[in-house]
């Protein structure tokens, strides 16, 4: 049986919930559960319903893009203290990539259906969650753009010509 009070403390200790209003915290904690994944486990897969989002407590999670004609490509890894998964906020609420545990990963998993219902009922709660999600999304977007700049401006090395 999940101990709600213990979860609330765990949630409060995560950077995502820093300085969060206790009422909001309690409401969110009501949709929250602990989860553990083992190396290689999928946290979610592309196309599945986005029914949760995740706060990483310990471990490394790889965000992977499935490539039809080859092995999946890891495009970003996330670690302790970070959050991921925003498809739960946007219709049609399906995951647009895979997430996989690189090692033993402990997360707080927030039930999306539960949260969406509470946010619809309490717009202030919705605002608070958006306010915490948006900067993370913006930072990831900005960093992705800089990664494009880096890859685009890196000189293309000339391969050595085979002798003879």
């Amino acid at each position: 049986m999940v101990n709600i009070v213990g979860l609330e403390d765990t949630l409060a200790a995560h950077p995502f919930a820093a300085d969060m209003d206790p009422d909001v915290l309690r409401t969110i904690a009501g949709c929250c559960s602990n989860a553990i994944y083992h190396p290689g486990d999928y946290l979610f897969r592309e196309g599945e319903p986005a029914d949760a989002f995740f706060l990483i407590r310990h471990g490394q999670v790889a965000l992977e893009i499935h490539v039809p004609q080859g092995a999946p490509i890891v495009v970003e890894t996330l670690e302790d203290g970070e959050i991921f998964g925003w498809s739960w906020m946007l219709a049609p609420y399906t995951w647009s990539n895979d997430a996989r545990a690189n090692d033993q990963v402990r997360v707080l998993k927030l039930d999306a259906t539960c949260l969406r219902r509470k946010m619809e009922a309490d717009r202030a709660l919705g605002y608070e969650l958006y306010r915490r999600f948006l900067p993370v999304m913006a930072q990831r977007l900005a960093s992705s753009r800089m990664r494009i700049v880096e890859l685009a401006t890196e000189p293309r090395p000339i391969r050595a010509r085979p002798k003879g």
Binding site: A71, I73, V74, V75, M146, E150
Partner: peptide
């Protein structure tokens, strides 16, 4: 910046 699935190292920007 990218790695094959199963790579255990960090994937992302220097930032």
């Amino acid at each position: 910046h990218s790695a094959p699935s199963g790579y255990r190292g960090r994937v992302g920007g220097v930032a």
